[in-house]
């Protein structure tokens, strides 16, 4: 009985998952014929009416559909029928671009705020006001000024991922141990070299934590943003399938959003581990 904790946890996870699937299956299965209908009428009404089947798809339906999607992730049959892979690809590309722009802006600016008390105090009111604004509230303004829905979505991603990175960078830079700064000072290390050789490595774990929070938020926001702008992307896919009344596809999309979000988070977590130093 000396199984490792990891193994026992995996067993519990599998049991819970199986229980969830079982309950789901039981809750959505057909309960048998509920009303006598002529076959033509029954055909018209579908299983929901004839066999008491729930309108909610069961795990088997979702599984079958998922398999279909996985077999052909990149097909493209026109604007309203693209493979899941393509839709996810659009979303990831938008998140990647908006996030990358946010990194370019937030990290140098965060350095400046962290290193200069003057800039920190001067920018503080702006940050305090801008930070709590829901990223989607920017959407109309972005659409009006940029006049391109796709770039507007990227802008929304940029604006939502900039804050955690900015604040974490500023905090990490300001909180670098005084003694490390003093080491650099006694060695007459110039400001630029000090920023790269002492402050950056010392603040890197905090900065990466901010980046990790940002990628999570960006992935949350992209779904909502794509529902608004439409056209392509996993968010649009969800909304389109809702209009198609395909709950199965909606569930699959939800699952895929979760998995991609987890992967993005894991990538950043790995980077964080790479720059973390033991003390």
């Amino acid at each position: 009985m000396n199984f490792s904790l990891r193994f026992r946890a995996a067993v519990v996870s599998i049991v819970l998952f199986a229980a969830f699937l079982g309950i789901w299956h039981l809750a959505t299965r057909g309960t048998g014929a509920v009303a006598n209908m002529t076959p033509e009428y029954a055909k018209l009404m579908g299983l929901t009416a004839t066999a008491g089947k729930s309108a909610m798809p069961g795990p088997l339906d979702v599984g079958a559909k998922l398999w279909e999607h996985l077999k052909q992730p990149f097909y493209d049959n026109g604007p309203n029928d693209k493979g899941l892979g393509i839709q996810l690809g659009y979303s990831i590309a938008r998140v990647g671009l908006g996030y990358f722009l946010a990194v370019i802006v937030a990290i140098p600016l965060g350095f400046l705020i962290g290193m200069s008390p003057l800039i920190s105090k001067a920018l503080d009111p702006f940050i305090q006001v801008l930070k709590p604004i829901s990223p989607l509230a920017w959407m109309p303004l972005a659409l009006y000024t940029i006049k391109d829905s796709s770039i507007s979505a990227i802008f929304v991603i940029f604006i939502c991922s900039v804050w955690p990175m900015l604040l974490n960078t500023a905090f990490g830079v300001a909180a670098v141990r005084k003694e490390w700064i003093n080491v650099a000072r006694t060695l007459e290390v110039g400001t630029i070299r000090r920023a790269f050789t002492v402050i950056l490595p010392a603040a890197a774990p905090t900065i990466l934590t901010g980046m990790r929070i940002s990628i999570g938020i960006a992935w949350l926001v992209i779904v909502a943003a794509e529902m608004l702008v439409g056209g392509t992307g996993i968010g649009y896919f969800v909304w389109n399938e809702w209009n198609n009344l395909s709950i199965t596809n909606v569930i699959i999309a939800i699952l895929m959003i979760g998995i991609v979000g987890m992967l993005l988070d894991q990538i950043l977590a790995r980077f964080t581990r790479m720059v973390t130093f033991p003390e």
Partner: peptide
Amino acid sequence: VIFQSHALLPW
């Protein structure tokens, strides 16, 4: 300067 807390760069 030799610091009390050694002040080595841990990375």
